[in-house]
C-alpha cells in the first residue's frame, strides 16, 4: 500500500510511462489548417489521445478530407457512438457523438466529436463518405434518438420498432418497463409470425 489508500486517485498519480507519450496530432493539425471554421475545439485527453470537436454542418467534408487526403488516408472506419452528458459538469449541448477512424497508412486513430442539443439532435449522415457508418448511425439513433440526416435507412437496429424512448439516455431509468405491444398479423411475411390478421 505505497500511497495512502484513503486519498482519492488523482490524475497526477498516473504512471509517466503510460501518460508520457501523447499520440500524434498531425491529422487534426491538417484539419485545423484546412477547415479553421469547422473545428470548434481541440484538446488532448489524459491517455494522450487528440480530439477535435467539429461543427455538425462541417462533419461530412472533414470526414471526406480525412479519408481522401493523400497524407492522411483515414479509410478504415472505426465506430460511432453517442454520449449523453446530462449528469456531467459540462452538459450544454446535451449530446456528444464520437467518431473513430483509423489510417492504415499512418497507423493511428483519429477521434472526432460533434455536439448537438436535445431540441435539435440532427447530424449530417456519414454514409455517403463511409458505408461502414450505416449500422453505427442506426445504433446511435436507436440508443440516443439522434437523427442522421441523409441516412438511407434510419431505423432501430437492436431494439424493436415499437420500443418507446431511447434507453441509453441518462433519464431513461435502468428498470423502466415497456408497454405490451399487440402481436403482428401473420399475413405480413416481412414482419414475422403472430396471430392471423383475420381472427
Amino acid at each position: 500500500m505505497t500511497p495512502p489508500f484513503w486519498a482519492p486517485y488523482k490524475a497526477a498519480d498516473s504512471s509517466p510511462s503510460v501518460i508520457g507519450s501523447p499520440l500524434s496530432t498531425f491529422a487534426l493539425d491538417r484539419v485545423s489548417a484546412h477547415f479553421p471554421e469547422a473545428v470548434v475545439e481541440r484538446y488532448v485527453d489524459r491517455a494522450g489521445g487528440a480530439w477535435a470537436v467539429i461543427h455538425p454542418d462541417s462533419l461530412p467534408k472533414v470526414a471526406a478530407f480525412l479519408k481522401d487526403d493523400a497524407e492522411l488516408e483515414f479509410k478504415l472506419f472505426g465506430s460511432i457512438d453517442g454520449v449523453d452528458r446530462l449528469h456531467l459538469a459540462e452538459n450544454d449541448p446535451r449530446f456528444e457523438v464520437v467518431y473513430f477512424l483509423y489510417s492504415l497508412k499512418r497507423h493511428e486513430h483519429v477521434r472526432l466529436k460533434v455536439r448537438v442539443s436535445e431540441h435539435q439532435p440532427v447530424i449530417p449522415s456519414l454514409v455517403p463518405v463511409y458505408r461502414g457508418a450505416n449500422w453505427w448511425e442506426r445504433l446511435t439513433f436507436d440508443f440516443y434518438g439522434i437523427r442522421f440526416e441523409g441516412h438511407p435507412d434510419l431505423r432501430r437496429i437492436l431494439l424493436y420498432d415499437e420500443f418507446q424512448g431511447h434507453p441509453l439516455r441518462k433519464d431513461y431509468a435502468l428498470r423502466d418497463r415497456q408497454p405490451l405491444i399487440p402481436e403482428r398479423p401473420i399475413k405480413d411475411i416481412f414482419r414475422g409470425p403472430g396471430t392471423s390478421g383475420h381472427s
Binding site: Y9, D45, A47, G78, S79, D81, F100, Y102, H109
Partner: peptide
C-alpha cells in the same frame, strides 16, 4: 475504483478484429 474523470479510446486485437473501448 475511483477512476479520475476523463475519457479514452483504446483497442486490442481480439480474435475477430479490433475490439475498441471508449470509456468516459
Amino acid at each position: 475504483i475511483q477512476v479520475p474523470p476523463g475519457e479514452c479510446y483504446d483497442a486490442t486485437e481480439a480474435s475477430n478484429g479490433e475490439l475498441g473501448w471508449y470509456l468516459v
